[in-house]
Amino acid sequence: MTAKRVSLTVNGRGENIAADGLTTLQQVLREALDYNSVKDGCTQGSCGACSVLVDGELRIACLLPAGGLQGAEVTTLEGLNARNSTSVIQQSFVEHSAAQCGFCTSGMIVSAQALLDENPAPSRDEIMEAISGNMCRCTGYLPIVEAVASAARKLAKGDGA
């Protein structure tokens, strides 16, 4: 298969990558660019551990062909780490012990960020809906939902915004 060159922005940095028809964004991020927060739990779109933002939208990196991402702006958790609102979400995850093995956690936080960017005051049901594509086998979803709800409250009050 012939590879083509694709220019895109990852976490604010311009990248030029090679991608053939089967290369996924997950492979590009993990293997070529070393963004380790992008996990691989299934390589088939069912666990959410590879969640990233593409042009601000929540996407599953393992199902996204990299070849179609010319000019796209990709953000992984490494990129979000600099954002104040993300650090509020992270602090809430810590306070609620919302991670155990941590393997799902990057994806969870990216999903939570995508939700709060779009809907700053989500209901409990909306939070559950927003993380429904992120599987966690360790923690149980309750602390995670509480962590997201508490982050939303803190951000509404202006903490860390």
Binding site: S37, F93, S97, A99, G102
Partner: peptide, 10 residues
């Protein structure tokens, strides 16, 4: 949890 801080940052 010992690695909580690094978990949440990926």
């Amino acid at each position: 949890q010992r690695e909580l801080d690094s978990h949440v940052k990926g």
